[in-house]
Design a protein around this nucleic acid. Sequence first.
DNA 1: TAAAGAAATGATACAACATAACATTGAAGG
DNA 2: CCTTCAATGTTATGTTGTATCATTTCTTTA
Lengths: 157, 157
Amino acid sequence: MRKLTLIDKLLQNAEEKCQAAGGRFTNKRRDILENLIRAEHPLSAYDLVELYNQSSEQKIQAMSVYRILDFFIEMQLVHKLPTLNKYVVCSHLACKHNHKDQYFVVCKNCGDAQEIAMNPTLTKELNESVSSVGFQLIDAQFELLGLCNACASKASN
Amino acid sequence: MRKLTLIDKLLQNAEEKCQAAGGRFTNKRRDILENLIRAEHPLSAYDLVELYNQSSEQKIQAMSVYRILDFFIEMQLVHKLPTLNKYVVCSHLACKHNHKDQYFVVCKNCGDAQEIAMNPTLTKELNESVSSVGFQLIDAQFELLGLCNACASKASN
DNA sequence: TAAAGAAATGATACAACATAACATTGAAGG
DNA sequence: CCTTCAATGTTATGTTGTATCATTTCTTTA
Ligand SMILES: [Zn+2]
Ligand SMILES: [Zn+2]
Ligand SMILES: [Zn+2]
Ligand SMILES: [Zn+2]
């Protein structure tokens, strides 16, 4: 019996989370998620349409991809990055726990994104800052623009 | 001699900032900025096209509005809110100083946005968090989703 | 002040991102 | 089976943003 690959495990974990929430993990959803996992960087919805239509016998349309992405975002398996109009798998796909506050750093040069868990102090500071102007926080996810390690060291050469 | 209104003062201040940076403050730019100031909430580029074409003898095209917005963003007189695909005037239009780190809270209910200056502690925490993963920050501006004071109190009725 | 150069805008076309609305298919439960 | 609801198909259209080349307007300077 063949050992499960890492991706198999991620997909299996994702399936469990979907089913636990009463959602189905259809073939289309599985394939879209797998493509996004393998990409290892943010993709647009239309990137995913192309990828799917190249790698599969079947065809999918943009409308369906958007619906599937919405579903995964609801399940917290995928995040949307509004500054890029792209989507990326949650870095906690392998974890059992549901993650809390996180943000993304986006590399201006290579476009890669990294999900960063907020430490308690940062969360606290942010919450205090927001509530000090009478605002009720619903979702703290955000993106910061900068240079990743790799690109920063290249740039300084 | 008529007293200058608040908006006149804001526009005058904006003009000075543009000229100090070697940019022109043309009539089109002035009118677009004035429309955005008067709106008092975020507008899309096409909202601004419509507003201009309704309120002016002349006509403007989307392309020009995008260029004007880019110019104002460069001048730090306008900010883009990527989660809304909308634009809003900087809350420091009346100040002489150039503002530093800030973020926006966006009301999920009414769509209003409020610009919040980051306090030193928050800036420090954020910088430390980012650099701890080897990332170099370029732009810390971001948006948080929630409920504004007015909408929160309505909702609890 | 006329010519040259640079900045701003016009005009047209199109690319990229996203949703509306209604029809059809397919899985799960009784 | 058959009902029901979730998921997807299908088509059309709305929204956001950029590319490209032409023209106008302002500024500089010879
Ligand atoms: Zn995540
Ligand atoms: Zn990079
Ligand atoms: Zn500002
Ligand atoms: Zn509100």
